[in-house]
Design a binder for these strands. Structure first.
Lengths: 146, 146
DNA sequence: TCTAAATCTGAAGTTAACTTTAGATAATGG
DNA sequence: CCATTATCTAAAGTTAACTTCAGATTTAGA
């Protein structure tokens, strides 16, 4: 048992299901900020388990790491967040979810209208013509969804 | 006005909003199969406008090109699809949407349960522990969502 | 104390979905 | 017929989110 409350990167990996390399990468991106031992090894707060769990959840909701970074920026840095802190993040994510559900529901309606009916007029269809983010231009993958 | 019903890659690009380079890439991936002129230029069916429009829609729903390929494989190759053909694809996409909405709705519930309440027991939370695809392992981007 | 298991760093590789570039050839409108 | 615009190909570059590798150092437990 550890003397204090800090955990190693290996343990954090086990607790979150993440690979050690992924956690190091998240540190680079600023998603976690561990302290170092005298021998330069990373030591994380126990609350970072939750922090990274939230990252995983947000990823499943389709957020990119940059957006997740913005969410987590609302939490106190380096100090364990309180219940209220977490609830605030939770509310933000909930809004994201609500928005996505709305978008999908609208898409479903349009799909029925535009392909399902006899007109086949996809060209005039709202689904495509609306200025709704078609995904930023430029190279790289295009997993947008909103 | 063109003598026959085939269109050039430039026109297809204008009609779909896609970049010419993207359309060439989609050809490589097998999503469209244009014929060639005597001078080796691509000529597309008018129905390919719709075909690529569906690709765009499916991408917005979060499908990867590989999955979209599978969807489009159900359409006749090289010949203009009928209304019924399109409706079949539409039904498939509708199912995808329904599934995603369900997933998000469940996620929302769990989020409220696990972060919103006082217990903060994310570790025991269904959101993470369930064997629900955390996204295939390996390198590359991780935009999963189901 | 000593050794096996865990960590460290930096650089390079990987996947997805495209874009950019360069030099060459085709098609079109006047 | 000719200039301008559109296309062609192949190869290399780009972004995101990581992984893999190699060699060196640290920790932890018997």
């Amino acid at each position: 048992m550890a003397t204090d409350t800090l955990i190693s990167i290996g343990e954090l990996a086990r607790r979150t299901g993440l690979a050690v390399s992924a956690i190091r990468y998240y540190e680079q991106r600023g998603l976690v900020t561990p302290v170092r031992t005298a021998g330069n090894q990373r030591r994380f707060l126990r609350s970072d388990i939750r922090r990274l769990s939230v990252v995983l959840i947000a990823q499943r909701l389709g957020l990119g790491l940059a957006e997740i970074e913005a969410e987590l920026a609302k939490l106190p840095q380096g100090r364990p967040p309180t219940l209220v802190d977490w609830q605030q993040v939770s509310r933000s994510l909930r809004k994201e979810i609500d928005a996505k559900v709305g978008l999908l529901t609208r898409a479903r309606g349009k799909l029925d209208e535009c392909i399902g009916c006899g007109c086949l007029s996809l060209a005039k269809c709202q689904l495509l013509n609306r200025g709704d983010s078609v995904g930023a231009a430029g190279p790289g993958p295009r997993f947008v969804l909103g």
